[in-house]
């Protein structure tokens, strides 16, 4: 009796094993929209001194496959731009005025297929700065002292130092052999720690399209900041450079609304996982590649990244109405 129970049990278990070995570990789920409609996406990047511009797209509901080329642009929406209570309807023939600091801009877009979207923004004041000094060090590091003028504007605004371009001419003897393009500028000034600038080993970094933020509350008085540009190949003995001269260095001092700052942060997190940022490239690109690859593997294995939603200041839809002012600062030898 006991033996037969045992045999039946084993046979039953074996049959279940066979059932379990089918390819059923991954199964597609039916994902319903729960009635969530696609939305209008407003994109307006407005700068003091330029005319307002508005682009409109529509979002794609997850589950509705689409090509990457189809960005969902919408051309037949009715767009109204209101600047300081004066209203314009945006069409091909409309000539909008240039935006001034502290202008209030409101955008309303309607389309029969989507809910109406609205967004508004107060344009920031102008921020400005000048170069106090710059020096090329013997190890091909370049020190720049920049003085940012006091900011007069909304105290919630954020001032950004933005690297645009810059390079060193490298010589062997008297012969110029290389024009080295900087990838970014670094700073160890603690003022940058007051907002969410990412740091590694105490360095805060600005690269092309990635400003280094500081709160406007820190600009009640003129503020001197120290920036470093570096040439990692200067450390390589094999190249035997003998001299370096500055070719050019172009910066922008921008004032952003606080919304814009939040938008930048969400973009950083969504695209680059910028809670981790490599150390300055001067210490070695090779290291960045190897370690970042390993860290990426570990990240994938050991922890999921929390989901990131791009910041939006658009009511009724998605996207972003940006407002900023910009002042160029250049260093030329």
């Amino acid at each position: 009796m006991k033996r037969s129970v045992l045999h039946i049990t084993i046979a039953l278990l074996l049959s279940l094993v066979i059932t379990g070995c089918e390819d059923i570990f991954i199964r597609e789920l039916d994902f319903k929209s729960d009635g969530e409609p696609e939305m209008l996406v407003l994109s307006a990047n407005n700068r003091v001194g330029l005319r307002p511009n508005v682009l409109l797209y529509h979002s794609f509901y997850f589950g509705h496959a689409h090509s990457q080329a189809d960005k969902g642009i919408i051309k037949d929406a009715e767009v109204t731009v209101r600047i300081n209570s004066t209203e314009w309807h945006l069409n091909d023939s409309t000539q909008l005025p240039r935006l001034q600091a502290l202008d209030t801009v409101e955008v309303i877009a309607t389309h029969p297929d989507y809910p109406t979207v609205t967004a508004h923004q107060v344009m920031p004041n102008k921020a400005s700065a000048h170069v106090v000094s710059w020096t090329i060090r013997p190890n091909y590091w370049m020190d720049i002292v920049l003085e940012i003028d006091p900011y007069v504007g909304n105290q919630d605004d954020v001032v950004g130092v933005l690297f645009n371009s810059g390079s060193l001419n490298l010589y062997k003897g008297e012969k110029k052999v290389k024009n080295f393009q900087f990838s970014g500028l670094y700073s160890t000034d603690v003022v940058f720690a007051e907002v969410l600038n990412m740091s590694a080993e105490g360095y805060y970094c600005t690269k092309i399209n990635e400003p280094l933020f500081l709160p406007s509350s820190a600009l009640q008085q003129p503020l001197q900041i120290h920036l470093i540009a570096d040439c990692p190949w200067g450390m390589d003995n094999k190249n035997n450079y003998t001299k370096a001269t500055l070719s050019s260095l172009n910066l922008e001092i921008c004032a952003y609304t606080y919304d814009t700052y939040l938008y930048w942060q969400s973009k950083r997190l969504a695209t680059d996982m910028q809670y981790y940022m490599g150390p300055p490239s001067g210490i070695g690109n090779a290291k960045e590649n190897v370690l970042e690859d390993i860290l990426e593997d570990l990240r994938n294995m050991l922890g999921e990244q929390e989901p990131v939603r791009m910041h939006t200041n658009v009511q009724g839809g998605l996207g972003y109405l940006n407002g900023y002012s910009s002042t160029a600062v250049s260093i030329k030898p």
């Binding site: 969530e36 996406v41 990047n45 529509h58 969902g72 973009k267 996207g319």
Partner: peptide, 16 residues
Amino acid sequence: VTQEYWDNQAGIWATY
């Protein structure tokens, strides 16, 4: 993610 859209300013497909 329930929707995705083209973020022209960021130059990315943003998720929502």
